[in-house]
Design a protein around this nucleic acid. Structure first.
Lengths: 188, 188
DNA sequence: TTAACTTTGTGACATAAGTCAAAAGCTCTA
DNA sequence: TAGAGCTTTTGACTTATGTCACAAAGTTAA
């Protein structure tokens, strides 16, 4: 099918494994597109899919003491899920689109069943989780720096973020007030 | 062997799988004991083993702007490794013993080779990494709270920590000065 | 193209937390 | 069991960052 071959190309690109292995997940993978502002995964609900971004941007946030706290942003080729929904539990985070975004949508249970009996996919799953853990360790280190250092580190490692994410969301991600971020930026 | 059967008992306990699977890692697992203050894994060095604590306590820390920053503590039944050494790279953290500690020591490469060709172990590896990721997410949330809240959350979730870890290390783990921690404790 | 709305920036002030220094409490060991 | 060397507490002072209120700039839509 026309559509299958397009998905296949993307999946080959994302996972970097042989076509035979890709065929094993084609049956429960599809393209999906949503609009800026749409909520993909909602805090407190189960969600039996995970995604990869083909084109677009999303943010993930949770609520704490009345405030929205951004936990991460994701762009092209990144995986989208929350640890909890991936484990079949209710989500602790909301994922919302920052731009019109095109995804590959994959059924979590079927993917996990495949990984349960297939080493190639089991390794890929480990690798995905590991890379998330490395991201989290880095994020923790951020918080032992001053707010100026946090901001500078962010724009150094992900300069595109300034073009694609509002300063309000960035300040929340960095754990500082909007006003403070604004002052840091005007000093530089 | 006497010793093998003792290790086996511990491993069965830790992993909760059948004896046949445990036999597969016995050949590269051994008991090991070190003294309080000893350094198990050193920042900047490779280390081809990982561990489980049978009895004792350790801390992990790294250096940032001249200061030691504690990233975690571990006690009985917990796994000890750094993400980097587990991946075969040089460590970004130092692991030091807080008490005389008895471990099970496992060869990382042999374990990973086993997980590469064996689904049971591949799943265990994923589960270990996932639970670390969940710990990290929780740790990140800590830093969006005030120092008083961070301290209260810690003693609520891990009350034993106060008995087994110095306040200096706890303050570093919580990302605040010793003096500030001391004042928070006297207010309570 | 203006009006309504949202996002960002600035000023004045409040406060949590850091720093430095010294005292008090522990604990190990000779 | 004294004392050397840690760890923890307390006090005085500084500083980074938050908060509130409002102004400016940008965006969207009728």
């Amino acid at each position: 099918m026309m559509n299958d071959s397009a998905i296949k190309t993307h999946l080959l690109d994302l996972f970097n494994i042989d076509t035979y292995a890709i065929d094993q997940i084609l049956g429960f993978s599809e393209f999906k597109e949503y609009k800026k502002g749409d909520v993909l995964i909602e805090e407190g609900k189960r969600h039996p899919y995970f995604y990869f971004i083909i084109k677009g941007a999303v943010k993930s946030y949770y609520h704490f003491e009345g405030k929205e706290i951004c936990s991460w942003f994701a762009f092209e080729n990144e995986m989208i899920a929350t640890i909890k929904t991936f484990a079949g539990e209710t989500s602790n985070e909301t994922i919302e689109l920052l731009e019109n975004t095109k995804f590959i949508k994959i059924q979590t249970e079927k993917f996990k069943k495949l990984a349960d009996k297939n080493l190639t996919w089991s390794h890929i799953m480990s690798a995905l989780i590991s890379s998330h853990a490395i991201f989290l360790e880095d994020r923790i280190k951020l918080h032992f720096m001053s707010s100026k250092e946090r901001y500078n580190k962010l724009i150094l490692s992900e300069p595109q973020i300034l073009q694609r994410v509002s300063l309000t969301d960035i300040s929340s991600f960095l754990g500082m007030s909007r006003e403070n971020l604004s002052r840091i930026r005007s000093e530089n």
